[in-house]
């Protein structure tokens, strides 16, 4: 069951990722990115990261992608003009050679690494909001506070950059 779920959502993630890169229109790319993030959230659940899976859906697929879609629609961003490829050879050979390279690298990584126990759903239960919150508010307190300052700076920067000129 774990293998089936992993393969299914990994395939969805890769297909959406490819679609993101090849689509001409930014809206299609944005929707593909939502697909990638959704399937990654399922994979996080399989890895026992419940809080991160929820945050992935809420923060990434919810907030950030809405921001993207909003800007795309605001700017009425159309497709891009087709740039002619430099070489026919590159277009023909590129994708098969990349597949060979990736397959070879995956094989070598599989061979070289020691074989740890596989990932089983439910084997790691330390990813609950309680555990993550405890780590954030004890061990990672200072970085957490610094991020709040970072977000404040980002808000101010976004307002300053995007405001209308007031005379």
């Amino acid at each position: 069951m774990d293998v089936i779920l992993f393969l299914l959502f990994a395939a969805i993630a890769v297909a959406c990722g490819v679609n993101l890169v090849v689509q001409k229109h930014p809206i299609a790319s944005a929707l593909s990115l939502v697909g990638v993030m959704g399937s990654l959230a399922v994979l996080y659940l399989l890895l026992g990261a419940e809080f991160i899976a929820a945050a992935q859906v809420i923060v990434y697929a919810g907030a950030i992608m809405v921001l993207f879609l909003f800007v795309i629609m605001l700017l009425n961003a159309g497709g891009e003009p087709k740039t002619p490829g430099k070489s026919r050879m590159a277009g023909l050979l590129g994708i098969p050679l990349m597949a060979v390279l990736l397959g070879l690298l995956s094989y070598l990584v599989q061979r070289a690494l020691p074989k740890p126990a596989g990932v089983t759903f439910g084997a790691f239960t330390g990813g609950k909001p309680y555990d993550v919150g405890k780590a954030i508010f004890t061990e990672y307190m200072l970085p957490f506070e610094i991020t709040s300052v970072l977000i404040l700076i980002a808000i101010l920067g976004a307002i300053v950059l995007a405001r209308k000129e007031i005379d």
Binding site: G127, L150, G157
Partner: peptide, 25 residues
Amino acid sequence: RQVDGHVYTFFVMVVAAAEAAVGLA
């Protein structure tokens, strides 16, 4: 079997949100 990776992921998400806001502006 440690939660530190989750915390890093959380921080990456926060920074990505800030980056998206500024970048889109």
